[in-house]
């Protein structure tokens, strides 16, 4: 039985140490070890994008990363998106455009959307739909989400 591994990483700007088993995914570590339940588990096999986090500057599905792979990395989760002053423009736009119903997919969509708009502030609808193809939503039918992302673009430029 392999023992617990000590991992030192940075989550939302905070140096973070944790112990995990090598078999545990980063998603399990975030939720079950660190109590950061903002990141959601959907399919647990990389298809749905609910568990999307930033991992060294790229979006990844945290169910397909091992917790031990976080050693020395920089991770941003949904908990790191809002500021103490208020919601991030992407979050605000999702609220105002009713781009969520049950909400399970929402943290993943917001992390993925922020990653896109930080990189490509002028992404058009086609690019937005392509970028978000790895995030599944069974409630909204996607149109409201795409409208929210376009709205967030405007808000972030203002």
């Amino acid at each position: 039985m392999p023992g617990l591994v000590h991992v030192s990483t940075t989550i939302n700007g905070n140096p973070t140490d944790f112990l995990c088993e090598p078999r545990q995914s980063l998603l399990e570590v975030l939720r079950d070890v660190l109590g950061m339940t903002g990141t959601k588990e959907g399919c647990n096999d990389g298809n749905c994008g609910a568990c999307t986090v930033m991992f060294d500057g790229r979006i990844v599905t945290s169910c397909l990363v091992l917790g031990v792979e976080a050693q020395g990395k920089e991770i941003t989760t949904i908990e790191g998106v809002a500021s103490p002053e208020g919601l991030h423009p992407v979050q605000q736009a999702f609220l105002e455009n009713a781009a969520l119903q049950c909400g399970i997919c929402t943290p993943g969509f917001i992390v993925a959307t922020k990653a896109l708009l930080d990189r490509e502030p002028d992404a058009d609808e086609g690019r937005i739909r392509h970028w978000l193809a790895g995030n599944l939503c069974r409630c909204t039918g996607y149109d409201k989400i795409v409208r929210a992302v376009l709205d967030a673009e405007e808000k972030m430029k203002a």
């Binding site: 990389g46 994008g49 999307t52 991992f55 790229r58 979006i59 990844v60 599905t61 397909l64 990363v65 993925a112 970028w131 193809a133 790895g134 995030n135």
Partner: peptide
Amino acid sequence: IGSIQIQGR
């Protein structure tokens, strides 16, 4: 291949 998330790994 896969999604943007998958292409990151």
